[in-house]
């Protein structure tokens, strides 16, 4: 029996770049053209194997709070990884990527795994952002980078596999500070924080 590790992953990026679609594709292998811009699932889960462990991703969506730059610090708490999404057909969305990275460094946990996803790569004929630029930037901040298409299911699995590989192995000393309480479970139960 493999150990299941819960890993919180938060999504970042401008409105409309396809954050929710990426999760939707990853978790449900489903793509919906008419996904509502603000209302999305608040978090979804999927478990994938990684070495001797199972990684259970708890993927948090922004719930639209990024639209007017009002993401709460609580959104980043305890995240093991962040997926920062831009749209390869919109140069602007690549520019603001840097702003999201900055925000992540300000509010996110230290040692968070960063993954950059250049989404909508099925539309490469109207591409505005060269892959090379993304690669250079990703390298400069120590992030992994991949171009994805939620629509055509390209590189979505790979994106999350990439994250899985970057997650440091469980530190046996990590447990000492735990004992945090999650409410709403039938019994009191010490739960792991996911990082």
């Amino acid at each position: 029996m493999m150990a299941i590790r819960e890993l919180k992953v938060c999504l970042l990026g401008d409105t409309g770049v396809g954050k929710s679609s990426i999760v939707c594709r990853f978790v449900q292998d489903h793509f919906d053209h008419n996904i509502s811009p603000t209302i999305g699932a608040s978090f979804m889960t999927k478990t994938v194997p990684c070495g001797s462990e199972l990684h259970k991703f708890l993927i948090w969506d922004t719930a639209g709070q990024e639209r007017f730059h009002s993401l709460a610090p609580m959104y980043y708490r305890g995240s093991a990884a962040a997926v920062i999404v831009y749209d390869i057909t919109k140069q602007d969305s690549f520019h603001t990527l840097k702003k999201w990275v900055k925000e992540l460094k300000e509010h996110g946990p230290e040692n968070i795994v960063m993954a950059i996803a250049g989404n909508k790569c099925d539309l490469s004929d109207i591409r505005e952002v060269p892959l090379k630029d993304a690669k250079e930037y990703a390298e400069s901040i120590g992030a992994i980078v991949v171009e994805t298409s939620a629509k055509n299911a390209i590189n979505i699995e790979e994106l999350f596999q990439g994250i899985s590989r970057q997650i440091p192995p469980l530190d046996p000393h990590e447990n000492e500070n735990n004992g945090a309480i999650k409410l709403g479970k039938q019994t009191m139960q010490a739960s792991r924080r996911c990082c």
């Binding site: 299941i4 292998d29 999305g40």
Partner: peptide, 25 residues
């Protein structure tokens, strides 16, 4: 028992109503 290759871990994740969060079990 999580069959990882299958699309989703549980049927909880739907986008139908937009409010689909995992209930805390």
């Amino acid at each position: 028992s999580a069959v990882p290759e299958a699309n989703s871990e549980t049927p909880k994740e739907t986008t139908d109503l937009g409010n689909t969060e995992e209930p805390s079990v």
